[in-house]
Design a protein around this nucleic acid. Structure first.
Lengths: 152, 152
DNA sequence: TCAATTTAATAACATAGTTTATTATATGCA
DNA sequence: TGCATATAATAAACTATGTTATTAAATTGA
């Protein structure tokens, strides 16, 4: 029973990822790139290390993604006037146009997948998932603390 | 509301992946390798292409994972007596021992994360998630069909 | 003020994953 | 039988990611 919940959650996230990848790729980006574009759409001027933190990516990994997105003329780097080490990231016109196409994809997929679930049940599902998430967050933090004290 | 469900599911699967990766890596394997070992534990003798299908991995990707797992002396390839093209995969003694350590990790994480959720709620959660999954599966298949007919 | 430390970004190297093409074997059917 | 096609595995080339080390600039603090 309890492990079924694990399997089903695993299946769901895999299916979301798959469908998402396919639909995003049809538009010409990977899911990883989509995350960067979507974040920048709402928070223009973020620098690389802040963005890497946000998206839980390695700074180096993001650095190279930014290289590629810049080559594809979807984003651009501008020097931070306050900190000469840092770049501020902005979507180009092309990047904004692409991000407009991407935005509805996630919402739409969820709409399709939950079309036949009554509103009451959606609320229940959300509440139960939120409890689940909050417990996982505590576990994650506890693991991180354990590691810290083992080191120190 | 509906997009919150998406975000929460995303968070949950990310947190499960993270915690899982950390705990599995402490034992000396990646999550991808863990999936291979766990499957083989229950289905010894599976060949590479069947296993790749099962785990939804590319045949080539699995081939290299098998190379590494074999180098690490966790699994071994034996010729299929029925089909001289194919290898049958088996855990070594070392692989079995490691798989024994991995087995409880998933179950345990879920136990911790759902400890404070009453049985009734767990059942409800599972039922709602199953509906969600089944809808996503239909969408995934519909997308695949659309692609097929666009090609043909 | 200036040496020590931290931070932002990235080059260089190592590892893992994907795509395409090849080899050996198996299967279907004229 | 023997030719066309399919299948199992993998080599080779390419792409993406993770790790370590370096550079330049910012911050801290005696």
């Amino acid at each position: 029973m309890i492990d079924n919940i694990g399997f089903v959650i695993g299946d769901i996230s895999r299916l979301i990822r798959r469908t998402f990848d396919k639909r995003a790729r049809a538009i010409g980006v990977t899911r990883a790139q989509w995350r960067v574009l979507t974040w920048l759409r709402r928070h223009e001027g973020t620098n690389q290390s802040a963005l890497a933190d946000r998206l839980e990516l390695d700074a180096m990994t993001l650095c190279r993604m930014v290289d590629r997105l810049q080559d594809a003329q979807l984003i651009e780097r501008r020097r931070d006037p306050e900190d000469r080490r840092a770049w501020q990231l902005f979507l180009t016109t092309k990047g904004v146009a692409l991000s407009d196409q991407l935005e509805p994809i996630g919402e739409q997929l969820l709409q399709e997948a939950l079309a036949d679930m009554p509103g009451k049940d959606r609320e229940r599902l959300l509440a139960l998932l939120e409890l689940f998430r909050s417990n996982l967050q505590s576990i994650d933090e506890a693991d991180a603390d354990r590691k810290r004290s083992a080191h120190g």
